[in-house]
């Protein structure tokens, strides 16, 4: 194991963590503020990726595609909130899971209806493609560095929004006591729509950014959604800071586990068996991490203490 490989893997872990954060931030806000479990969050990620692919295909501009993805996912989020989610706030979690699961199916088959069953093409723009050489002779794709930059910028922006703006104050108030802020004259339903659209936009942006290096296909959101749930459970539900720390933890654990565990098993097994066992265990590692965190702090790393 060379230091170069190690640093490259740390960067990879950071990059996947930052993307997870964009997903988890929306999920944790929606759950924290509205008490809603939204399984269809992954579908908004998919909407972002498909919109970006369609717009990039039509115009050839990646920047335009990203903006379109943001807008389309926010719009889809707002519409879904107004039409479906709004009716679910007073229901129990089982009803919410059922309804938002139905949304996944509707989004998936709707996307297939529009775009067909074959994956779409979305590529990195020329000015971001190829590797750059970092200090120490590390070759790293420029696009992934850009993703890390965008993700951290957005994280900073979200902190500012939550901590220093009127909207942020209302969001925090909504988390603490929903009835009270409604009684104080804040239009709570408008606030809900805004929060939901904001979460959706972040998911859509993540979908578009990741779509350029992965495959844009129906059902791409669900695996990420599961990880995002792990992240918010680790970080503490409702906490943006928790989502960021949890996401980076999950990203690093996943990447470095896949690197170290097979190497560890190779010390006392033959290579093939070590690979199989190591990979199998590495894929469990984030869930083990989640279990450990839950035993230690049941409310998550930054979750509010249970009343």
């Amino acid at each position: 194991m060379t230091p170069v490989l190690f640093i490259e893997q740390v960067l990879n872990g950071l990059q996947s963590g930052v993307m997870l954060f964009l997903m988890a931030a929306g999920l944790t806000l929606v759950f924290g503020v509205m008490g809603l479990i939204n399984l269809a969050h992954g579908s908004l990620y998919m909407v972002g990726a498909f919109t970006a692919a369609a717009v990039a295909g039509a115009t050839g501009s990646f920047a335009l595609a990203l903006m379109a993805a943001l807008a389309a996912a926010a719009a889809a989020g707002a519409i879904v909130e107004l039409v479906v989610i709004r009716r679910l706030y007073d229901r129990d979690h089982l009803d919410q899971v059922l309804a938002t699961f139905a949304l996944i199916l509707i989004f998936s088959e709707g996307t297939r209806y529009i775009f067909g069953s074959f994956p779409l093409f979305l590529d990195i723009p020329d000015y971001l493609s190829g590797p750059v050489t970092l200090p120490g002779g590390i070759q790293y794709p420029l696009y992934r560095l850009t993703i890390i930059g965008i993700g951290l910028t957005i994280a900073a922006g979200l902190f500012w929004l939550i901590s220093y703006t009127r909207l942020g104050i209302r969001i925090r108030a909504g988390e603490a006591d929903r009835e009270m802020i409604a009684a104080l004259g804040v239009d709570i339903s408008k606030l809900y729509t805004i929060v939901f659209a904001l979460g959706a936009a972040l998911a859509g942006l993540a979908g578009a950014l990741v779509g350029a290096i992965q495959s844009v296909q129906v059902g791409m959101g669900e695996p990420v959604l599961i990880l995002a749930f792990v992240v918010i459970v680790i970080g503490g539900i409702g906490s943006i800071k928790g989502a960021l720390v949890g996401a980076v933890l999950v990203g690093l654990t996943d990447t470095l586990g896949g690197l170290f565990l097979p190497a560890l098993f190779a010390l006392f097994m033959d290579n093939s068996a070590a690979q199989t066992t190591g990979s199998a265990l590495a894929s469990m590692l984030i869930y083990i991490l989640m279990a450990v965190v839950l035993v230690w702090r049941p409310q998550g790393l930054y979750g509010a203490r249970p009343a």
Partner: peptide, 29 residues
């Protein structure tokens, strides 16, 4: 869907060629 970690290991391994079986979306990524 993300193969950054694997690609880093390929880079570090000193291989002269790569064989992969990753059907569907995995291969695209």
């Amino acid at each position: 869907t993300d193969y950054a970690a694997e690609i880093a290991q390929i880079r570090a391994s000193g291989a002269d060629s790569v064989f992969f079986f990753l059907p569907g979306g995995m291969g695209i990524s």
